[in-house]
Design a protein around this nucleic acid. Structure first.
Lengths: 177, 177
DNA sequence: CAATACCCAAGCATTTTAGTCAAGTTTATA
DNA sequence: TATAAACTTGACTAAAATGCTTGGGTATTG
């Protein structure tokens, strides 16, 4: 399990897709602009995502990409694995020249840990993260209402009021993980 | 939170240290040989680990490195952070040119996820992993005993017997995480 | 003093990242 | 059926990170 900026780009793009492609296809150009990722880099990433059956594409005008499965069925781990692909085999991979002492033991411990992280990320779906966004949007709306009702105009009180709601929201949402 | 081979090297070396440096110091040369990592690369990693106060060093003959704190007080996250150090600031880091629309939202979602992973790895200590190793060692011993008692000589039965115990062990140990 | 082992800096080969460019191919729609 | 919009593919490249080497130090023990 590797966790690099490449994986972050992929997850970000997939989140964008999950948010915007309810009914219609989303062009990479749109994602590129919204997330400020270079179009051609996105092309490379989505080429892999498509080969992994995580997205489907429709060509021609009005075309673009859509999630192939429901957002709830796509895990963060899948997205990251899809673009990383080089599963590096822990050096003593095929037990080639494994000294068969401490070497394998610590290697084994690491691969266990790696597996744990993978499991962890397998338990979080795109839908989970999107839901988190929606809850936050609602929270923001509520904050605005609250501020209006209280007739708060000063910047300090407003931001502290926002923080309160945000913190509450965080507590609610963090129970998802 | 980045998770690369560099971090794996660091964690592997720290595990080796945790296992072997109960009382005496362990030289990098020993670790290098046991874990087949280049000595000079280890020096670079340990230079960072020392600056992060995760290990202490004694010079001269018989010298080497020891954990600065107890294995239970050093988390995997600390080790990885120590050698990675370039906390990349998520591009729109200082809110520089953030379009303040979807951009920030998805970026924010990612950084939340990253935080979750960090928390997850903060909850696992070197001692946890070493304990895991020790349980497995005991399991192996027990397997040998069992095999002896049962007078099992064929390779197939032996490995299946080992698998049984290993699976049991895994179930016990996996509850740690 | 000599051997051991840490400490440090510079440099280097390789790989990965991130992105560009330049061709295609497919398909909606005018 | 043109044609333009949009995906598809591949080759290529600059910059960064990784993994490692070399070559010096310095502290400490015996």
């Amino acid at each position: 399990m590797r966790l690099t900026t490449k994986g972050r780009y992929a997850v970000t793009a997939m989140l964008d897709l999950a948010i915007h492609s309810e009914n219609q296809a989303v062009s990479l150009a749109d994602i590129a602009e919204r997330q400020s990722i270079s179009l051609s880099y996105l092309e490379q990433l989505f080429s892999k995502l498509r080969r992994s059956d995580l997205v489907k594409s429709t060509r021609g005008p009005g075309g673009g990409y859509q999630l192939k499965q429901a957002g709830a069925d796509i895990s963060i781990a899948q997205v990251i694995d899809s673009v990383n692909e080089t599963v590096d085999a822990t050096r003593c991979g095929g037990m080639a020249d494994c000294h068969h002492g401490d070497v394998c033991l610590t290697h084994h411990l690491w691969s266990d840990l790696s597996k744990q992280i993978h499991q962890f990320l397998s338990g979080i779906s795109l839908a989970d993260l999107v839901a988190r966004k929606e809850v936050q949007d609602i929270a923001k709306q509520q904050t605005k209402l609250t501020d209006n009702l209280l007739n708060v105009t000063s910047l300090e009180s407003k931001s502290s009021s926002e923080n309160l709601v945000n913190n509450l929201t965080k507590q609610i949402v963090s129970s998802r993980f």
